[in-house]
Design a protein around this nucleic acid. Structure first.
Length: 693
DNA sequence: CGGCAATGTGTTTTT
DNA sequence: CACATTGCCG
């Protein structure tokens, strides 16, 4: 096993395999390399069975990457290893033990929207005004409680006011509903294994024996449930290695607690601590800028990253007129980088909120610069896709009342509120699911459709099953009848869904419905199923954690955006924004551009914000301002050939997005439907990026 | 029951 | 601005 090329500290982190180990790994300190080498070392040098190793990462992407890198190091035996996110690890335990949890095999997983629907429904049933009691707020309270491992019974004890009393009632009923629906929400994927282990010590023992080597990445982002789960699994052998950096803790809104990492030494006796402080990623300027920002946080261990690298060029800062100008600046800069021979894969644009991607997309689109948006909710969030998935969920688990209610009248079957109330009350009387309680009326026809598909299911592939649903449900026909552009796009999207199922089948062979539903509920990011292309990357700073790029643009550095307005009042939250900024800066290897806009349209309203405080915190030493007194907008240049006429239905080819169909024309703007995952894009008539067939 | 217009409400961040 | 929800009419 070749450990050359690792520094002394890294080598130690690789070879100290027994007992508790805390690796404090600063940004860019070669953490992933250490982790993968460590696992390879354990298997190859020490002969540890990969089956006995559990590695937990924070995102599916990280899990996938880690697995690939280990396979490169040691070959296919790495497939024996469990490398997954906390949530998919939890799910795998649930799958092996659903009976002990008193669930049926065909359980489903509720996504955040499903959970919200349940809460809304409960509030309605309690005859409360959802305006007065915001369902989102209540849902988030419930989720926090669950992640703190507080049961409804325990929650009741802490109730101090009317609102908490209400949350308690909703929480209790929420849990009951999940159970009746034979379903788990995201939080359950962590909690249920803990419950299982508490009630079945021998089950826990089996997992402890199996996973006698445990590795946890991004430990600073673990919440209470994840913390306890980790502790339980590793309690027997205590061969636990956690890796993290409290300066990069950015998920407290999800209950994560960076104190878990600070307390590690107290939690595990005889633990060893290794600090990786040499940064191999960024230039001195970038690294020092990051240090300058983070030192403003009071709550942190004092540690400082250093690098042997050159100073590099100063960070560029530019304040622009508005968000369009900002996007144009990014585009212009990217173009010149590309002309200098930089490849698109080495460029990223980072932002605080998902909504900010839009302006950038429009400009890149018009300029034929291929890009991908990572993590956007894009596809799976579309109505028609969610409807289709609801059909699949109901077919899989007929107890899923939430899915049933979503689609019982999709397409329109003249089943309205009255009918649903009727079914509901019969279901209550019979103590059955909505689906089982149906025995007459229009709804019986719906039931028949579902039952027919269920009967055919064993003989069908997922793609065929989807086809069957689109066909027999009447969804496709209804959209076809509409003959609107909107409907056409929806049909396109549904067809596109089949290309996902197909790529699944090509990749994994025959896949069962439950596996498929599982996958799409846990891996929301469609980019994961696509081949790597040479494109510019757009994503939130949160999604960028763990990644690196030669050239990084951070946009929207304004007070109220970054730091976000909701965080300005609370110092704890402000410090988290600052850590987020630290993450953003440290993504860059060679050059960093910081941008903001004087004026920005938010909710259709013009808003004016001063520059982000983080700009000043970096200071002139590392920062070069590109602002001058007489700045003018640069966003008026356009390249259009107005002589080309278009009509709806025209086939066009876009250099980046391939073949598309014109689905709408609004003055000089064309709406063109492109294949998945691009969807419908707006492009100027006659723009040089498109060619009429 | 469906359709349409009026009204209102919201965006941090993600498994 | 974009969308979801509500209220009213046929």
């Amino acid at each position: 096993m070749n450990l050359e090329g690792l520094n002394e500290v890294q080598k130690k982190a690789v070879t100290k395999t027994e007992g508790p180990l805390l690796v404090l790994a600063g940004a860019g300190s070669g953490k992933t390399r250490v982790l993968t080498t460590r696992i390879a070392y354990m298997i190859k040098e020490l002969g540890i069975d990969p089956y006995n190793i559990l590695a937990i990462t924070f995102t599916n992407k990280a899990a996938k990457e880690m697995k690939e890198r280990i396979i490169n190091l040691i070959g296919p035996s790495a497939y024996e290893m469990q490398i997954s996110t906390f949530h998919s690890f939890g799910l795998s335990i649930i799958k092996e033990n659903y009976e002990k949890l008193e669930y049926k095999k065909n359980f489903t997983i509720f996504d955040s929207d499903d959970s919200l629907s349940v809460v809304k429904k409960i509030i309605k049933e309690m005859n409360l005004d959802p305006k007065q009691y915001n369902p989102r707020g209540i849902k988030s309270k419930i989720s926090s409680a669950k992640n703190e491992l507080i049961t409804p019974e325990e929650y009741e004890k802490f109730v101090t006011n009317e609102y908490e009393e209400l949350v308690y009632k909703v929480y209790k009923s929420y849990q009951k509903k999940l159970k009746v629906n034979n379903s788990f929400d995201f939080d359950d994927l962590l909690i249920m294994p803990i419950k299982l282990f508490n009630e079945n010590k021998e089950v826990l023992k089996n997992y402890q024996e199996r996973f006698n080597y445990v590795l946890i990445d991004e430990y600073q982002d673990t919440n209470e449930a994840q913390y306890i789960l980790t502790k339980m699994i590793s309690a027997k052998y205590k061969n636990i290695c956690v890796v993290g950096d409290e300066n990069q803790s950015i998920y407290s809104f999800r209950g994560s607690n960076y104190r878990n990492i600070l307390n590690f030494e107290k939690d595990y006796a005889n633990s060893e601590v290794i600090m990786l402080e040499e940064n191999y990623r960024s230039t001195k300027n970038i690294l020092e800028a990051a240090n300058a920002v983070i030192k403003n946080n009071k709550q942190r261990k004092d540690k400082k990253l250093w690098t042997r690298q050159d100073e590099g060029v100063k960070i560029k800062y530019k304040r622009l007129v508005d968000e369009k100008d900002e996007a144009f600046f990014v585009k212009a800069k990217i173009k010149s980088l590309l002309e200098d021979g930089v490849t698109r894969n080495n460029i990223a644009i980072l932002y605080r909120t998902n909504a900010q991607s839009r302006n950038i997309e429009e400009v890149l689109l018009a300029e034929n610069i291929p890009y991908k948006v990572v993590g956007g909710f894009y596809f799976y969030q579309r109505k028609e896709i969610k409807d289709l998935i609801a059909y699949l969920k109901l077919i899989h688990n007929s107890n899923d009342d939430i899915s049933l209610q979503r689609i019982i009248n999709v397409p329109k079957r003249k089943i309205g509120l009255k009918t649903i109330q009727k079914i509901q009350s019969r279901a209550n009387d019979l103590n059955s699911s909505l689906f089982d309680s149906i025995e007459s009326g229009k709804e019986l026809e719906f039931k028949k459709i579902i039952n027919d598909i269920i009967a055919k299911k064993p003989k069908l592939s997922i793609t065929e099953l989807v086809e069957e649903v689109l066909d027999k449900s009447g969804m496709r026909q209804e959209l076809k009848n509409e003959k609107t552009l909107d409907a056409e796009i929806r049909i396109e999207n549904l067809e596109e869904f089949k290309s996902i199922t197909k790529s699944f089948e090509e990749r994994y062979g025959t896949i069962m419905l439950d596996e498929f539903l599982e996958e799409i509920s846990l891996v929301a990011d469609i980019e994961e199923y696509k081949d790597k292309r040479d494109v510019v990357t757009l994503m939130t700073v949160h999604s960028a954690k763990g990644l690196e790029f030669d050239y990084v643009f951070v946009i929207g550095l304004e007070e109220t955006i970054f730091p976000h307005k909701n965080s300005l009042m609370d110092n704890e939250q402000l410090e988290e924004e600052r850590r987020l900024c630290y993450v953003a800066i440290t993504r860059a290897k060679k050059e960093l551009f910081l941008l903001n806009a004087k004026r920005r349209r938010i909710f259709g309203m013009d808003t004016y914000s001063p520059q982000s405080r983080f700009i000043e915190e970096i200071g002139d030493e590392f920062l070069e301002s590109l602002n001058s007194e007489n700045d003018v907008s640069i966003s008026n240049a356009r390249n259009i050939d107005s002589s080309i006429e278009y009509k709806i239905g025209d086939n066009v080819t876009h250099i980046t997005f391939g073949e598309g169909i014109v689905v709408a024309i609004n003055k000089s703007i064309l709406s063109i439907a492109f294949p998945h995952p691009y969807g419908v894009k707006s492009i100027m008539k006659g723009h040089k990026s498109i060619r009429k067939e």
